[in-house]
């Protein structure tokens, strides 16, 4: 029972991070109708930045703030300068640009900070003894911290979407960009803010997950997370923030239980398992569990 609970805790912690990464993907998809393959690598870059700031003596929370701010800037600038001019051309063009960004940001992080693994400080107490027992299982403080931050972040995003003018305008642009413009919404600025918001959320996902990750901070840290987050976003429905959160948690818990209990897959094929989920969803329920928009199909 205690082992099951610990696996469950692990799953929820990872799932929480997948959830906010998926949220970043959903925010971008709702604003510009593309999946930003580079979201993970942009977050990787800002996470390296946060790590670097801690090496020059700043506390990690300051690094996290800087990562969030840089993530916002990167997202907004990328939308304005690279995505907007080609968005109307075709899917392929935005995908290629995203792949270019993917490669460039990963290599840039490696170029600036080399490819050695960095131990990433945690925002929370992360010692071996920093846990409290729950029904015989250990719940570590840093896991609980991640849960709380993710919860706050999700609440913040939902507040933004549902209770503010800006959020209403974002939803309006996602729903019917032309009518939004005709209502006086500055659609360009809204799209840019959407990408910026996704940049913040993605960056925070990076800063939160790397201290918990077995690989710590290395050039390959974020890619698997992007894969799981894509699976989560598709699972919940690419245009549904609620779906992203539910999908992220579901994938995290499933991953932890499958690697724990299913021997054939155990440990060596976890990404493949997530990818099988992606393919099955695309084939049989392309709108996901909570999605509403008709996805492109023929």
């Amino acid at each position: 029972m205690d082992i099951f609970l610990e696996r469950l805790f692990d799953g929820v912690t990872n799932g929480a991070v997948y959830a906010i990464m998926a949220l970043a993907l959903v925010v971008v998809f709702r604003s510009t109708g593309t999946i930003n393959f580079a979201q993970g690598e942009m977050a990787l870059f800002t996470t390296y930045l946060a790590w670097w700031l801690t090496t020059v003596g700043l506390p990690i929370w300051a690094g996290a703030l800087a990562a969030g701010a840089t993530g916002f800037l990167l997202g907004a600038v990328v939308e304005r300068t690279l995505i907007r001019p080609i968005r109307r051309r075709n899917d392929m063009a935005s995908l290629i640009v995203a792949l270019g960004l993917f490669t460039a940001f990963n290599a840039l992080a490696g170029l600036l900070w080399n490819s050695e693994t960095k131990p990433m400080p945690s925002l929370f107490p992360a010692g071996l003894e920093d846990f409290f027992p729950v029904a015989g299982a250990r719940l570590y403080w840093d896991a609980l911290g991640v849960w709380l931050v993710v919860l706050a972040l999700i609440a913040g995003v939902f507040f933004l979407f549902n209770r503010t003018r800006l959020g209403l305008q974002m939803r309006a642009v996602a729903d019917n960009a032309e009518s939004a413009a005709l209502s006086g919404v500055p659609t360009g600025r809204i799209l840019m803010l959407g990408w910026g918001l996704a940049g913040i959320v993605g960056s925070l996902a990076g800063v939160l997950v790397t201290p918990l990750s077995a690989t710590q901070l290395s050039l390959t840290t974020m890619f698997p997370i992007l894969i799981y987050a894509s699976a989560a976003a598709l699972f919940g429905g690419l245009d549904s923030p609620v779906g992203a959160v539910v999908g992220g948690l579901a994938i995290g818990v499933l991953e932890a239980l499958i690697t724990g209990y299913v021997e054939f897959i155990g440990g060596t094929l976890p990404q493949t398992a997530a990818l099988v989920v992606i393919v099955l969803i695309l084939l049989f329920r392309p709108t996901g569990l909570f999605g509403t928009r008709q996805l492109e199909r023929l």
Partner: peptide, 29 residues
């Protein structure tokens, strides 16, 4: 729109996933 000209476009001029009230609020952007 800011200058005082507003268009009701042909066909779909609303935000289908927003509520009626939200539609009206967007109109006052």
């Amino acid at each position: 729109v800011a200058r005082g000209v507003s268009l009701v476009p042909q066909g779909r001029g609303t935000f289908p996933h927003l509520t009626v009230l939200e539609n009206l609020h967007v109109g006052a952007a």
